[in-house]
């Protein structure tokens, strides 16, 4: 979706993650980039270099906030202090929408610093949707939730991952940050069809997409964000773009980070698929009523 209520009716194009090794290049050469995604938690501080750099970036670029520690799936609900700091940052960045993950990661005040997969149950979907609504009502900006990559499945799950994602976003009336690399990784790890996943999520809710690289091991795939995007992921991205329309797209590259130009050029490969999608004159995805899965 080029512009919808879940991404603040914006049409942001292709962005990359703002990462420390690129600060000097960006600030001194001011390259032309559609937008930067920042990790919210890196800037939820009171001062110093992080905020000084951020202010310089904000003066020249469009920025969208992406979080890694809201833990929408947390049974205890959103942390009040976290929300307070996050709101302060959203006022600074004026992010048109905000994203975080469909996962859990903390228990009784102890943090895993990981994006842990959820049991796909109706009770968990209800609780998660309530958490997302609380975050949106506090921050007063659109929210989109990202599907995570995972390495395990739970006995207690009552539905597929895409059914769970759909259930949550419908109950919360929020957007989706569709990470096609994560879908690919989980599909390989769990033996489902990545195309079934993409075909069956509510396309009109897709506010943004993520693409990234991963690493193959003998028995599983790890979501490492330390490689260029692999061909099967580009194919999935093309498929998703055909179904969802041209959507704000972000390349994640978080480890073994190469030069700014290399990362940006990798991201810009998405243009090829976007051009194909535009040529195909994809109709705007219609709002589809939720299939009852209970």
């Amino acid at each position: 979706m080029p512009a919808n209520k879940f991404n603040g009716y914006t049409d942001y194009g292709i962005g990359i993650g703002l990462r420390i090794p690129h600060y000097e290049h960006i600030l001194s050469r001011k390259p032309s980039v559609d937008w930067f995604e920042i990790i919210s938690e890196n800037f939820m501080v009171d001062g110093g270099r992080p905020l000084e750099v951020l202010d310089q970036i904000l003066a020249q670029y469009q920025v969208v906030q992406h979080g890694v520690a809201m833990y929408f799936g947390a049974a205890a609900g959103p942390n009040k202090e976290h929300l307070r700091r996050l709101k302060t940052l959203t006022k600074r960045t004026k992010t048109p929408w905000l994203t975080d993950h469909l996962c859990w990661g903390s228990v009784d005040g102890t943090f895993s610093h990981d994006l842990l997969p959820m049991p796909y149950t109706f009770a968990a979907a209800k609780q998660t949707a309530a958490n997302i609504r609380q975050v949106r009502d506090t921050l007063e900006i659109p929210i989109a939730v990202e599907n995570v990559s995972s390495y395990t499945e739970f006995h207690v799950s009552e539905m597929t991952e895409w059914e769970f994602l759909s259930e949550v976003v419908e109950l919360a009336d929020c957007g989706i940050l569709l990470d096609v690399n994560n879908i690919y990784v989980s599909a390989k790890n769990h033996g489902f069809s990545a195309y079934d996943y993409i075909d069956n999520v509510p396309h009109h809710r897709v506010a943004q997409m993520h693409i990234a690289g991963h690493t193959k091991f003998e028995k599983y795939i790890l979501d490492t964000h330390d490689h260029p995007v692999l061909d099967p992921v580009w194919k999935l991205y093309a498929h998703a773009t055909k179904l969802c329309g041209v959507t704000a797209t972000l390349l994640e590259w978080d480890d073994k980070i190469p030069s700014f130009d290399e990362v940006h050029n990798e991201a810009l490969k998405a243009n090829e698929f976007i051009a194909q999608a535009r040529e195909a004159k994809i109709p705007v995805p219609q709002k589809i009523s939720r299939t009852k899965i209970r």
Partner: peptide
């Protein structure tokens, strides 16, 4: 003392 903060900082 496991992490009690949202940030590894």
């Amino acid at each position: 003392y496991p992490s009690g903060s949202f940030t590894l900082r």
